[in-house]
Design a protein around this nucleic acid. Structure first.
Length: 358
DNA sequence: TTTATTTGACCCTG
DNA sequence: CAGGGTCAAATAAA
């Protein structure tokens, strides 16, 4: 569980399990004559699962310093389960480690150097608009010309900054060398409801960045950490917290799959992966979905720990966090009838066997 | 009317 | 003091 592999292992395992379960569903579904739509959905879910699984493996394969990058997950991923369950420390830009309690955002002006940063470089096919498909709702609050930079830098903050006190921000800087490339710097972790459920239900194209031809270029990777980070951006919420079973995601899969048979044993970890159905349609299957496509799912505080460490919560915020966190269930989402039951898989399958990820 | 974006000014850091 | 980050009024869009 605490192994450096846990996050990836769990992600991969869950992807495979997901694929298997959905395939099973599909098999059952094939007996029904009138559910073509759901079949399509099932197929997409299967494909998405395997895409993700492959992505994981590719990431591993392309990363020589995996051990280090596994650590990187802990510090780089905004909602990394490792960072969540690690010590309550944040890594500062300068590399120093400080106690979260020192972090304050009392000034209205420039914030203290952010405790957490994540740098991602993504590519946009069109080269015209920024790559925004990262699973969060961002609101642009500024843009500045940067000395020596050909293109202005855009500043975004979490849409739920006011409503949920989420202080995550990001900066988008188009690369001078290649306008198709965008350097995205994330600051702070999401403490809002979308913090762990970067789910992208279909939505009309809009706002911030045009969706046309947007495509995260998986091949454009600067470094292993970045690779993993980008990978995380793609998979983001779906795989967060896999290692502790805290898998509640306020995303209701839009198809009829989930409620048509409760016996099909889609476990929490798989239900979470419902994000695949949309997110992967977005990221992996269809690159044309705009960003800002998520269920806000208010009152859901997924990123409790991050949030506490990340900013000076108000008392009410903290109370909410605590209550959420301490409530027995791992799923604060009333809509879901999750089951934590282990998934029905072949116990002989050596998912966790040594070398499985090699 | 509400919500998001733009943009100039303000403020902080180095 | 310059450069960068943020605020907030003005503006645009839904």
């Amino acid at each position: 569980m605490d192994s450096e592999w846990s996050w990836e292992q769990n992600t991969l395992i869950n992807e495979l399990i997901q694929g298997m379960e959905v395939a099973r569903k599909l098999k059952e579904d094939l007996r029904m004559p009138n559910s073509v739509d759901s079949r399509d959905m099932l197929v997409q879910r299967i494909l998405s699962s395997y895409e993700k699984a492959l992505l994981i493996l590719r990431c591993n394969a392309s990363t020589s310093e995996l051990q280090a990058t596994s650590q990187a997950f802990a510090t780089l991923l905004p909602d990394s389960p490792l960072s969540v369950h690690g010590s309550p420390l944040s890594e500062y830009v300068d590399g120093s480690i400080k106690n979260h309690q020192e972090i304050k955002h009392d000034s209205k002006k420039r914030k203290i150097t952010p405790k957490w940063m994540d740098h991602v470089r993504v590519s946009c096919e069109s080269g015209l608009e920024g790559p925004q498909e990262d699973g969060y709702n961002w609101r642009k609050y500024g843009q500045k010309d940067i000395l020596g930079a050909k293109y202005p830098r855009s500043y975004y903050r979490c849409t739920f900054r006011n409503t949920q006190g989420c202080w995550a921000t990001k900066q988008v800087q188009r690369s001078d060398e290649d306008p198709k490339i965008f350097d995205i710097t994330y600051r702070g972790k999401h403490t809002c409801s979308q913090g762990n459920n970067a789910v992208l239900p279909p939505k009309s194209p809009d706002k911030q960045e045009k969706p046309h031809s947007r495509n995260i270029d998986i091949h454009h990777v600067q470094a292993s950490q970045e690779n993993l980070t980008k990978f995380r951006n793609i998979l983001s919420a779906s795989t967060d917290k896999l290692d502790n079973g805290d898998m509640a995601y306020p995303f209701t899969f839009p198809s009829t799959l989930d409620n048509q048979d409760n016996h099909s044993l889609i476990p929490l970890t798989l239900e979470n992966e419902c994000f695949l159905s949309d997110q992967c349609q977005t990221h992996l299957l269809s690159p044309t979905t705009p960003e800002s496509n998520y269920f806000p799912s208010p009152n859901f505080q997924m990123n409790e720990f991050d949030g506490i460490y990340n900013r000076p919560y108000s008392e009410s915020d903290i109370n909410e966090i605590i209550s959420t966190n301490t409530s027995a269930t791992n799923s604060p989402i009333p809509d879901f009838n999750f089951s934590l039951d282990p998934v029905e898989i072949d116990p002989n399958f050596p998912f966790n066997s040594p070398g499985f990820f090699s």
